[in-house]
């Protein structure tokens, strides 16, 4: 398994964000992490990407403890966070070059061009990020997240605010990444369509706890994903 989360807990000023979270993710999964707003999805991702400390529990990423070896973990993962801000004064190629230097010493122009081509931004490398549309920025964020060819890619609401074409393009990109580059994808979203199209396994979080987890097709049975979701997140379910 590539992710192992055990008894993860986190409180903010007395409010319990995560309450003993437990789940695993296998290599090669496109794993959907669902939940209503405020369920704890972003908190979970931030802990797993070592930018937030948990109060208790354990997280192993590809065998490395996130708390003991955060730098080692960061070298094999990457993420497109929900609050995806950019250095708007930079051109796209400059942006990727800057982040590449934080992972390794040099990145060639060819590698930059290839990354931008993968995400569909070929020909826009010299444009300032300021001029990019929302969809283009999301793609650029994914390009940045691919700089270190991560084994594990976290995406937090990656299609929020995109038009249907934009969403479809992102979907196709993620499927290609998973299939052709063997990248495990951890997708946090509340958009059930995205989950339906992309994920093979899911976990549903509510009030900081996993309420349901497993293979999507098996969980759906003869119902729909909406059925599973609303049933799992109904008030009083816990």
């Amino acid at each position: 398994m590539i992710i192992s989360v055990e008894n993860l807990a986190k409180k903010y000023d007395g409010y319990t964000a995560l309450d003993g979270l437990n789940f695993t993710v296998e290599h090669g999964d496109i794993f959907g992490f669902l939940g209503p707003n405020g369920a704890g999805k972003t908190t979970t991702i931030r802990i797993m990407t070592a930018i937030l400390k948990a109060d208790s529990g354990n997280v192993l990423i590809d065998g490395h403890s996130i708390f003991g070896e955060p730098l080692a973990v960061k070298k094999i993962i990457n993420a497109v966070p929900e609050s995806n801000g950019y250095y708007e004064w930079m051109a796209a190629c400059e942006y990727l070059e800057f982040f590449s230097h934080l992972y390794k010493e040099k990145i060639s122009k060819q590698e930059v061009d290839k990354l931008l081509e993968i995400v569909g931004l070929h020909g826009k490398e010299s444009h300032l990020i300021r001029s990019y549309s929302r969809g283009m920025r999301q793609r650029l964020g994914i390009a940045r997240a691919l700089i270190n060819r991560p084994k594990l890619l976290f995406l937090d609401e990656p299609t929020n605010g995109l038009d249907p074409k934009g969403r479809r393009d992102i979907h196709d990109l993620l499927i290609d990444l998973n299939r052709d580059h063997d990248t495990t994808i951890f997708l946090s979203t509340h958009l059930l369509d995205d989950v339906e199209r992309l994920c093979n396994r899911i976990a549903i979080i509510n009030y900081g706890k996993i309420v349901r987890a497993g293979e999507l097709d098996r969980m759906k049975g003869k119902g729909t994903i909406e059925d599973i979701f609303f049933l799992s997140t109904k008030e009083g379910t816990l």
């Binding site: 930018i51 730098l71 960061k74 966070p81 609050s83 995806n84 801000g85 982040f99 934080l102 940045r144």
Partner: peptide, 17 residues
């Protein structure tokens, strides 16, 4: 400023202390 502009998270994700 980086937090308000949303750029800090990407920096913190990188393998830099």
């Amino acid at each position: 400023g980086e937090i308000e502009r949303g750029t800090l998270e990407a920096l913190l994700l990188s393998p830099i202390t």
